[in-house]
Nucleic acid binder design. Structure first.
Lengths: 344, 344
DNA sequence: GTGTCCTGAAAAATCGATTGTTCACCAGGT
DNA sequence: ACCTGGTGAACAATCGATTTTTCAGGACAC
């Protein structure tokens, strides 16, 4: 081994009896350079023999590229966004980038963490999982330092944005219930300010309007946690008149809703139908196997990564992209059926 | 703005009429240097005015530290390990490190990804989520390049290892069932080669031995997926004689087990009790709210990070650490009760 | 014999910050 | 006048790889 542990390019060059310059070009297969075959061979075999590994930091410093992409996610410990994360991570990795992971809340609260994350030279670009409201400063701070792509945000900033068709998903879920004969359908929404929830809600409203039920919108506010879903369900159960069906904004929220209904001995779907948006892995294992709208969330992540990489490579990406393929799709399970008054 | 976008230290120094050397020392608050107060002020205000941000890559090159820690996880899209990931990520971030995320399978399969990840200078250390078997090459490749801490692996390598007390969790789950009067208890195990599963199984066996049921061990092999749990449950249901209780190695596997039991109209816990190890968020929302052993997985991640940071700072960490605080704990829910023959 | 061209490779500058060494200047002592 | 000492800051080397520029030496033509 060498004094400081790893052999450097200079060590390889010395050992091969050439200059670092020519060693660099040979090892990087620079086509614009003419080298004798035996020299080329010698350099290569010395590099292998010494176990030479390029120093990524030195390379970045000179090359102005770090080969790293930042992933800023909400709620790392929540299962909601793992698909997006996995899709983005996988695409970045396959493209030869390494990925840096950060949590949006931490970054927004802690300036020194934010600075460390976007420190110059560290990142070639950032994928910012967004649409949670109240994140203008973060988006601004990040997108002014490095190329960025937003995931799930509404458009309206001058930063490229990618999202799935949440409104269509809301329509699909609601039309399914309408088709089964339901007319009293409540929407269990996410937290205030969530653009994702708002778009799904607007789909729900649109579907109601379509059948002339414009005034029938019935919104119950919850959040992204099982607990908030449970609270919303309790609220609904205290009404004198139950709706015959629920559209729940999200699968995690729905898990809380279903558990509360089970504990209150309200039968699903006999007494009340439930459909959710987001076909997560666990929905078929909940208290009742849950009918859900499948969204291409993995694609969402990977497409965001693709767009970002385009931007890094200098191709300016579209500013507003919908993932339409595969299209949102209803996955039928046990939790939806005709409303009680019309059963059979 | 400056030619290449961001002002450099030299720009700040020029603007303030000093040398880069003194600017660096002032901005880093080097105590060993004497500077007049007005000079100090001038440098600081120029830096602020110009919006100077240090170039992390240049700093790393000189300082031999990158300020980055690698997190290598199994199954990023699986919910099993998010707690560990979140714990490690959070601890690293708070300590001022950024975190690089990679998937163990990808790295093991793809040499160029592995090389990009452990390229010299990029990482100060790696937390390697382990214990899945068949990963010797990966552990070797990583731990020979940078300081590393293994999570969940058996010891026996010369790499520091952290884990929770899986055996104790297995004992706890099994003793709970024994205490309820069960004597025919099957263990639904993880995949072959999983050290985590093996340790939990050994706890199960130990608890049986403790009450003189050494020969009563009944192992059904499954895996980490809901599907594998479902298959295992189907296998059990085809027996002429059902066990009265199941210990399931993991909550995700258990979700498949429970769904299969529900679909086969086998009542839990009236006909069969089920307990799982790993009190994930969703276990209370499954087909039946599931009794589970809570493990300090978040702590596991954060302790691994702490040990790694110690190692990076030159303090050699213990080679074999158990997370004992908080201790494994049984969380009682609906899925366990007395066996049918003794009910009441 | 000298100038030109080409090949193959070395030299040196560069990326931006850090850090050990050196240095100019002034006050005070002899 | 001359040396000493301390202050405040500049100088220059360094980290490791990349890349532009330069150069040595042989072949060839005139």
């Amino acid at each position: 081994m060498y004094p400081r542990g790893h052999p450097t390019l200079r060590d390889v060059a010395n050992e091969a009896g050439v200059s670092p310059a020519i060693a660099s070009r040979v090892l990087n297969e620079d086509p614009k350079v003419r080298v004798r075959d035996d020299t080329r061979e010698r350099i290569r075999s010395v590099a292998t023999a010494l176990g030479y590994v390029p120093h990524s930091v030195a390379r970045s410093l000179r090359g102005a590229r770090s080969g790293a992409i930042g992933l800023v996610m909400h709620g790392l410990d929540s299962p909601i966004n793992v698909d997006v994360l996995a899709g983005a991570q996988s695409r970045c990795t396959r493209a030869g980038y390494v990925t840096l992971l950060a949590e949006a809340e931490e970054l927004a609260e802690n300036d020194s963490q934010l600075r460390a994350f976007v420190a110059r030279g560290r990142l070639d670009g950032v994928i910012l999982h967004s649409g949670y409201g109240q994140e203008d400063r973060l988006v601004e701070a990040i997108s002014s330092s490095v190329p960025a792509v937003l995931v799930n945000a509404d458009d309206g900033r001058n930063v490229p944005t990618v999202r799935v068709d949440d409104a269509a998903a809301g329509v699909l879920a609601t039309e399914h219930l309408l088709g089964l004969g339901h007319r009293e359908i409540a929407f269990v929404a996410g937290p205030d300010g969530s653009q994702t929830s708002d778009r799904r809600e607007s789909g729900y409203r649109a579907a109601l309007r379509q059948v002339g039920l414009a005034g029938g919108a019935d919104i119950v506010h919850a959040g992204w946690s099982p607990r908030s879903g449970a609270v919303a369900a309790e609220e609904i159960l205290q009404r004198p008149h139950l709706p015959t069906a629920l559209v729940v904004v999200n699968a995690v929220t729905a898990s809380g809703v279903l558990s509360t209904l089970r504990d209150a001995w309200v039968r699903v779907p006999e007494e009340i139908s439930v459909v959710t948006i987001h076909d997560a892995w666990f929905v078929e294992h909940l208290a009742v196997a849950l009918t859900a709208v499948r969204l291409p969330l993995h694609q969402l992540g990977s497409t965001a990564a693709t767009l970002l990489i385009d931007a890094i490579d200098g191709r300016s990406p579209e500013t507003n992209t919908f993932i339409t393929e595969p299209a949102p799709e209803l996955v039928l399970r046990r939790s939806t059926d005709h409303p009680p008054s019309r059963e059979g």
